[in-house]
Design a binder for these strands. Structure first.
Lengths: 84, 84
DNA sequence: ATAATAAATTACCGTATGGTAATTTTATTT
DNA sequence: AAATAAAATTACCATACGGTAATTTATTAT
């Protein structure tokens, strides 16, 4: 491999629930966690994880926060384009 | 006033929907926008804005993105504590 | 290939979202 | 204080979220 530690450590912009789902899945997999692992930590059902990772637009905000937290991720709001 | 430009330009961590609502309201007011202004831009009803600003946990994710966008804000995900 | 593990789909269904629009309450302005 | 504007509340209600749990499909491992 060329670059062992290729995972970007910078914040990743979330423009859509698609972005969100993709990020969650990638990070979960990178962490070698299963969906079931998260179910327990985030207190949710399998349907939610699947729908979240598939980019469902209507997932509830707090539940997303729970899942992100279970993954060791956090959300931040910033001014458009700042820090690009 | 002691510090005229006191608004932090750094990303603001969102730990809860309370944080989110507070931030949205503060930023909206700072921008001298009314709730009604956002209704149009974000294609939503007054109920949503009120509930969002009041920290309702179950607001739908995509709608939140819409409102943030209308305010010129964006969401980012980062690793817990990175950039603290 | 088989077995085992993980992910996705589905049905059932109680509950809650959120739009609309009218009304009330609160805040701001003159 | 009156008037104006903004924010919040409410009722009505169609839509759909999301838990559970079983089933199916896909992926990984032996």
């Amino acid at each position: 491999m060329i670059n062992d530690d290729s995972e970007a450590k910078q914040p990743i912009k979330i423009k859509s629930t698609q972005d969100l789902g993709q990020l969650v899945r990638e990070y979960r997999v990178a962490q070698k966690m299963t969906q079931a692992d998260i179910l327990g930590l985030a207190n949710t059902g399998n349907r939610f994880i699947v729908e979240l990772e598939n980019g469902k637009p209507t997932v509830q905000f707090q539940k997303v926060l729970d899942v992100l937290d279970a993954l060791g991720l956090e959300l931040a709001v910033r001014i458009n384009g700042s820090l690009k």
